[in-house]
Structure formats: C-alpha cells, structure tokens
Amino acid sequence: MLETTTENVVRSWVDGWIVSRAAAPPVVEPWGYTIDVGLTGHVGRHVFDATGDAVREADVRKVAGSVRAEGFWIKIFADPAVTAPWLGPDWWIDDEPGYLMTVPLTPVPAHRLTAPDGYHLRTWTRGGVVRALVTDADGTLAARGQIAPTGATAVADQIETAAAHRRRGLGSLVMRTLAAAAYEQGAQTGVLAGTPDGHALYSSLGWQVVAPLTSAKYLGLAAG
C-alpha cells in the first residue's frame, strides 16, 4: 500500500495527471517537477514535492521568481494562507485551499455501478485513461470524470456534476465507477487533487486528506 505522508504521493499524482491531461513527462527538479502542458492559459506548471510544513519558503520564492510566462501555474501542497506571501503580486492565488487526497481501492459491487432512473452511464478507455459519462434522458451532460491508472496508483481527474443534476448521487456514481475500473487494472490506491467544492464528495467516499493545496497562476509583471 502506498504511504500517504511522503513525497511519493505527489509523484504518483504527477504521473497520473500527465497521462490524464496528455501533458509532457515531468522534468525532475531539486524541489519537485516541471511539466509542459502547452495550452492557452496553462503553458506549464511547477509542482513542489514536499507537503505541509516540509515545503521550503526559499524554494517557493526562488521558483516563483523565475517564472516569466503568463499562464504558468504553481502547485504547492500547503495552505495558501501560508504560501501566498511567498509568491508576490504577479500571481493569481486561489485563496481557498484544494486538497491532495488518497483512498484505498477495493472491489465495488455491480449494483453500486448502476445509474438511477432517468440517467445513462457510459464508460470507455483511450490512451490509458478511463472515462465515465452520465447523461440524462435527453443526452445532456449530467456528470463526468476520468481516472489514469499508472501501476499501483490511479489519479482521478476532472470530476464534474452539472449544476442542474447535483444532489442525486451522480458524482458518487462516477467516482465509484472510476475506482472500480482502476482496481480492475491492478491499482491499489486512488490519488487526486481536489477543489474545495469536491472535498465533501470525496470525503463521503472515504478519501483522506494528505495535505492542503495552493494553486497559483502567473499573470505577468503588469499585474504587479
């Protein structure tokens, strides 16, 4: 079983995230990882591999100070209330912490993978990523998500429930479906970096917080 208190959780998340998003392989840095993403508004990202109190202010300041590309992101597994002063005025910082979370993967009974009346669940795999889609009777998107198994771990990503379809168990259905698929492929531990909105859903399904998450995007020198 993967230990949930060390930097290997961060590396597992990085490895699964790049598969999920079809990003470049990570470049290993002394403080963590640099990933080329290549999207407008998300050119790339720096991810620190330390968590909580182990995150070094000097490392964050040095790395943040070296960024010059607008749309470059930084991910720090510590509370933004602590890390925000280290980044400076050129950064947009989400003032609500996200969460690095893990869960042991176990078999899921078939009856727990059935969509409620009026909804249809479809899954498929492409490029090593398992996707789950829930639509209503008209074919409208109700909920979705994906998971990238990478050996012993699998990273859940882009979990979403449409506003008009919330509180109907669809997010839980997507998560169970993805977890079951990853377990069938041999993954033992699920990993994700969740938003504040998703925290309640994941916690209800047994996911545990390893560390808070600061998300920040470089806006350019003009912003400062």
Rank of each mutant, 00 (worst) to 15 (best):
D117N: 08
G127M: 06
L205E: 08
P97H: 11
L133D: 08
V130A: 13
T114K: 15
A179Q: 13
G198F: 05
P89V: 07
V103A: 12
G118Y: 05
L141K: 12
G128Y: 05
D117L: 13
A156Q: 14
H111P: 10
T106M: 10
L213Y: 08
A216R: 00
A180K: 03
G171H: 00
E96R: 15
A187P: 04
T161L: 03
I159Q: 07
W124Y: 11
T140K: 12
L213T: 09
L192F: 03
P196K: 00
A143Y: 03
A180M: 00
V130N: 14
H120W: 09
A156L: 14
T114W: 09
T177R: 03
T195C: 04
Q185V: 05
H165I: 05
V134G: 06
P212W: 01
S204G: 13
T150F: 08
E96D: 14
M175K: 03
A216P: 04
P116K: 03
T214E: 05
T106K: 13
G194W: 00
V129G: 08
G198A: 01
V108C: 13
H165Q: 04
G118W: 01
R144C: 11
H111R: 14
L178V: 08
E160Q: 13
A115R: 02
A193H: 10
A200M: 11
R126P: 09
V134Y: 04
V155I: 02
D197H: 10
Y183M: 05
P97R: 03
L170V: 05
L170R: 01
V155L: 01
A187E: 01
E184R: 15
A156D: 14
